[in-house]
Structure formats: structure tokens, C-alpha cells
Amino acid sequence: MSASRPRSSAIQARLATTLWRTLAGRRLASLWRLSRLIGPLVYRLSRRERDVTEINLAQVYPDQSAAARRCLARDSLTHSTATMLELGFAWMADPNRVETSIVEVHGRELLDDARAQGRGVIVLAPHFGNWEVLNFWLSSHFPFTAMYEPPKVEGLDPVTREGRERMGAKLVPTNPRGVAALLKALKRCEAIGILPDQEPNWGSGVFAPFYGRLAYTATLLPKLVARTDARVVTGVARRIPGRGFAIHFLAADEQVYSPDEEQSATGVNACVEDAIALDPAQYQWEYKRYRKVIEEQEGHPDHGSFRLY
């Protein structure tokens, strides 16, 4: 049984790599049309993604009708499908093609001004639009460092790493050594990337509101700010279906600069909400953002029986 798992992983990696290399040569308009065909099938056939997406949307948009939320869920899974199909484009296509697909850049002055003041920049990059295109742009225009956790399918590690590093990005591990590398990059007035909407391990975060409900949120940001005086911006690559991408950099909520971890985490979640407001369908709602709340409640029966998933 254990011997079959490496073989299965290797087959998955070869199939995914072959698919991405094939799709890398396709036009973005073709990939979007393909996404519009596959996305509704994902919504119908992938119960886990559909259910989690609809549950999350019910929490954050309670005033919308159920029909409107179902429509948004289908659109969201279509955009998530597009992101997966576009990985080959972001990682393997000719760099000139990727660069020219970025047809708009908004807010670049937030990064330029911070670096002109001799300060590093922390880019909060939520799972919105195509974050691999954002990585491409950032590493093409700035010295850029980001944390990296190898994919679960081991054979995809070299493909993922090569794709993310090809324009000069430096990837560091998600451990104290990686945090030290982020600090050094900020002190050199460089840019670093942080995923603000991934739930950290217990002990590495605090509960802070996200659309009015508590979500376990990482506390790495205030530690980095306190030790470097870095500026914080939110960055996303918004998909313009069939045409390309628009890069948006948004000024961070001022709470992110608070030394109080809960207040800073509240600011981080507000930054994610601001990015989502650009186009809610492009956020990856199929992630169980409130999962740690459930785990915490299950460990403390006196907290009641509230459940989401």
C-alpha cells in the first residue's frame, strides 16, 4: 500500500505538469472559455467545494438571497477553475506573454514610496484572482521574498518552485529560518509576500473578526512590522476575463500597525475584505476560513453547539 502512494504521486505530478505545459501555450481567452465550461461541472459534481463555498457565502453575505449566493458560488468556482488552468501560463509561458497580459497596475506608488523612504514592504496577498500572476509581477519589478510550503504531491515541488522563482523571487520555508529571511529582506528595503487568509497552526494566531465572525488569523505581521518599520499593502491580480489581469495594490487598514496582536489581526482581515470587494467572485471561498473556531468550540463544550461545516 505504501509503495503505491509514491507511484500514484508521481503519476499525478506528470499528468498535472503535462497539462500545464500544454495549457501554457493557449490564449487566456481560450482558458477562460474552458473555465466557463468546467466551472459549472465543479459546482455540480464537487460537493465539498460547493458546500464550503455556499456555507461561507451565507456567513459573509446573509442579506443576499439564496439564489444570488448560489450564482456567486458558481462564479467563484469558475474563477477558481480558471486559476488552476492558468498555472501553466503563469509558471511556464514566455515571460513577455505574461507581462503583456497584465494590462493595468493600480497603486504601484505605495510600494515605490515606501522603498524611497528606506522602508521594506509587506504585501498581503489573499487567495484572490490569480496570485501566481501577482508573484510574477512582484518578482519581475522588485527584490521579492515569499514563504513557500511544498505541495502535497511531492513530484510537483520542482515545477512549483521553478515557476515561482523564474523571475527572481526568493522562496523561504515556513519556519523560524524563513521568518529570519523575511526580516533580513525587509531590513534591505525589499518586498516580501504573506498569505493573510491561511489559518495558522494553534499558537501562531489569534481570533479576529472576518466579515463579523471570528476567524483564526496569523500574528506574524505585527512581529515583522515591530522589528522593521515596514509598510503594509494588500496586493491582488484581478482577472479581466478573456483579456488578462489588473494588478491592484491597496493601502492597508491602519490597524495592521498596532502592536496589539488582536487589533493587528483585525486589520489584516479588513485588508482581505477590501480586496474581496474588488470582485467577490474572484475570492477562493472554498477554503474553510472559520475551521479553527469549530475546533476551539469542540474543545470547550461550554461554548455552545454553533457549527458551520
Results as ranks from 00 to 15, higher is better:
residue 261 E to M: 12
residue 209 P to Q: 15
residue 52 V to Y: 00
residue 71 C to D: 12
residue 155 G to V: 13
residue 96 N to D: 14
residue 25 G to W: 04
residue 235 G to A: 07
residue 215 A to H: 03
residue 206 V to M: 14
residue 202 W to L: 11
residue 300 H to N: 14
residue 219 T to P: 00
residue 83 T to S: 09
residue 77 L to Q: 01
residue 107 G to S: 05
residue 193 G to A: 11
residue 4 S to R: 15
residue 126 P to E: 13
residue 279 D to V: 04
residue 285 W to P: 00
residue 294 I to F: 12
residue 70 R to W: 01
residue 96 N to S: 15
residue 226 A to F: 02
residue 108 R to E: 14
residue 175 N to Y: 02
residue 266 T to K: 07
residue 88 G to C: 09
residue 276 I to Y: 06
residue 37 L to S: 06
residue 206 V to A: 14
residue 267 G to N: 07
residue 143 P to M: 08
residue 205 G to L: 10
residue 32 W to M: 11
residue 70 R to H: 03
residue 68 A to V: 02
residue 38 I to F: 06
residue 300 H to K: 14
residue 98 V to T: 12
residue 133 V to P: 00
residue 289 R to D: 05
residue 210 F to M: 13
residue 112 D to A: 14
residue 4 S to L: 15
residue 228 T to E: 03
residue 309 Y to R: 05
residue 2 S to K: 10
residue 248 H to F: 08
residue 303 H to A: 12
residue 279 D to Y: 06
residue 160 T to D: 08
residue 191 A to N: 01
residue 106 H to E: 13
residue 272 V to W: 04
residue 32 W to R: 12
residue 64 Q to N: 06
residue 217 T to C: 13
residue 170 K to F: 03
residue 168 G to N: 02
residue 161 R to F: 09
residue 263 Q to M: 15
residue 277 A to L: 10
residue 286 E to V: 06
residue 17 T to V: 09
residue 287 Y to L: 01
residue 271 C to M: 07
residue 96 N to F: 04
residue 56 N to S: 05
residue 216 Y to L: 11
residue 293 V to F: 14
residue 280 P to H: 12
residue 134 L to H: 10
residue 236 V to H: 02
residue 222 P to Q: 04
residue 140 S to C: 06
residue 77 L to A: 04
residue 136 F to I: 01
residue 165 E to M: 06
residue 155 G to D: 12
residue 80 S to M: 13
residue 272 V to F: 05
residue 197 D to Y: 05
residue 15 L to D: 03
residue 235 G to Q: 08
residue 274 D to P: 02
residue 303 H to E: 13
residue 92 M to D: 08
residue 255 Q to K: 15
residue 38 I to N: 00
residue 3 A to E: 11
residue 281 A to D: 04
residue 250 L to W: 03
residue 121 V to F: 01
residue 9 S to V: 06
residue 211 Y to S: 04
residue 74 R to T: 06
residue 297 Q to I: 13
residue 294 I to T: 15
residue 56 N to L: 04
residue 236 V to C: 03
residue 54 E to H: 07
residue 154 E to Y: 05
residue 226 A to V: 07
residue 138 L to S: 03
residue 82 A to P: 00
residue 162 E to L: 11
residue 187 K to S: 02
residue 289 R to Y: 12
residue 250 L to C: 02
residue 70 R to E: 04
residue 276 I to D: 04
residue 49 E to H: 10
residue 302 D to V: 14
residue 166 R to L: 09
residue 155 G to W: 12
residue 82 A to K: 05
residue 295 E to Q: 14
residue 229 D to T: 06
residue 182 L to R: 00
residue 7 R to N: 03
residue 134 L to E: 05
residue 106 H to K: 11
residue 292 K to D: 05
residue 168 G to M: 01
residue 17 T to P: 01
residue 114 A to K: 02
residue 74 R to C: 09
residue 143 P to I: 11
residue 281 A to V: 03
residue 296 E to Q: 14
residue 179 V to K: 02
residue 226 A to K: 11
residue 138 L to E: 02
residue 230 A to V: 03
residue 296 E to A: 15
residue 128 F to L: 07
residue 26 R to H: 10
residue 139 S to C: 03
residue 63 D to E: 15
residue 49 E to P: 00
residue 152 K to N: 15
residue 171 L to M: 11
residue 188 R to N: 15
residue 164 R to P: 00
residue 233 V to P: 00
residue 216 Y to V: 10
residue 80 S to Q: 10
